Structures are given as structure tokens and as C-alpha cells.
Simulated assay, not measured.
Amino acid sequence: MKKIYKDASSALDGVLFDGMMIAAGGFGLCGIPELLIAAIRDAGTKGLTVASNNAGVDGFGLGVLLETRQVKKMISSYVGENAEFMRQYLSGELELEFNPQGTLAERMRAGGAGIPGFYTKTGVGTVIAEGKDVKVFDGQDYIMETGIVADLAIVKAWKADPSGNLVFRKTARNFNPPAATCGKICVAEVEEIVPMGSLDPDTIHLPGIYVHRIVQGEHEKRIEQRTVRKAS
């Protein structure tokens, strides 16, 4: 099965549809599938529900889909770096489902593992618990969270082989693996595609059975908050 595509647009061909749910990997601006996000913007797919740790920043990452009003709902744990995200939410233009960071990661992992729900103490006694099933274990309250199964997962990796085995680099190994597993279809953009057999099996972070399509490309290395000393 051929998994390598020439560019992000062709890798998403026949996959996108209005109203779909997308799980996106990355943390802040680290390990985000920027090429695939740009291709979704160019495709004009709208009414999206996006599950991601955050929504990028203004003009980059998932922020570009907010600017074009293609996102209907965000399932996120952090919104602080994106002014347009905050503006749309506060004005009622964007639905937002807040998730504690660990809960969001586990919801993705659970969905990918075929687990429909799980109980956690995180969020008990807060607005996160409103409307959710509560059970007592060892005398303490736990709330039930549901696993996430997305129509599409988009992730960013460092290396891939032609069968789709992925290696993530340092901090980029964050939300990418659980996001990849919870998608019915997973498309990965990578910095380098290496020959089959050149990856040590013990270094592979995500087996290729989870990855359906791969695209190689050049990526921008952005910094969210650049902090430097004044010149002496």
C-alpha cells in the first residue's frame, strides 16, 4: 500500500469534508502539522471540530483556520497565545470545550485504544464535572470522560519510513502519538523519509499500522515568545 504523497494537498485528497472532527498533534508551536493545516485552509473545509492542546497563534498553526472561520468548535486545554481564539470565544462565534491537559491526552489515547470512557479525579468539583457521571472509588469522587475518535488525525514527525513508522523528535513527542492513534485516518507530515529498514525498531515511537498517508516537507521553526537579553 503506497503511503507517500507528493504534497500536503494530495495527502488530504478525498479525506476532507465539512463538519468533520480533526485531532491535531503538537504542543504550542512545537510538533504541529503546519503543512497539513495550511492545506485544510486552502481546501476551504468548514464547520470543523478540532481536538488539540491549543489553537496555535495568530497567523500560524491552527490559528490560520480560525482566521478563515473554518473551525466551529475547539476541544482544547489552553487558549492563551491566540488573541483571535479568545475574541471568537468571548463573542460567542466559537464553541469551546475545555479539557485539562492530561485528560485531553488520555481521551485521545483511549479513543485510539478502543476505550469508550474512563474515570478520573481531575476536574472533580469544578465546571469540568458538570453534567458528567460521577462514581466513588475508595471513598473519592471520579468523573467519567469519553474517548475521542476523530474522522482525521494530522500529526508532525521527524522521520518516517515508507511503511509509516514514525519517530518524533524531543518535545514534539507530546500530543502527536495519541492524536495519531485516535483518527480513523491518520496523515503525517515529516521532515525526512528514510529507506525501509533503516529505523531501529526500538526507536520507533508510533507503528506504521496507525499511519495511512505521509508527506515530506520543509517546516518553519517558530518560537511563541521570544525572550532575549538587551545588548550590552
Rank of each mutant, 00 (worst) to 15 (best):
D161N: 13
W158I: 00
V124Q: 01
K159Q: 13
P162F: 07
T146E: 15
D161L: 08
T120N: 13
A153T: 09
I128M: 10
P116F: 08
Q140C: 11
T120G: 08
K132Q: 05
V127S: 15
I115P: 02
K135L: 11
V155C: 00
D138N: 13
I143F: 00
A150W: 03
G131T: 08
Q140K: 15
M144P: 00
N165M: 08
F118N: 05
K159G: 02
V127P: 06
A157T: 02
G117M: 12
I143H: 04
T120S: 15
I128P: 00
N165A: 08
P162R: 06
D151I: 10
V134R: 01
M144D: 02
K132W: 00
T122P: 03
I128R: 03
S163H: 09
I148Y: 02
Y142R: 12
S163A: 14
I115C: 09
G164I: 02
G131E: 05
V124N: 00
K156E: 04
P116N: 10
T146I: 12
A160W: 00
E130S: 13
Y142F: 14
I154N: 04
K121W: 06
G147D: 03
T126W: 08
T146K: 15
G139I: 13
D133G: 02
K135A: 12
G114W: 07
A157Y: 01
T146R: 14
Q140T: 13
F137A: 12
N165C: 08
E130L: 13
I148T: 09
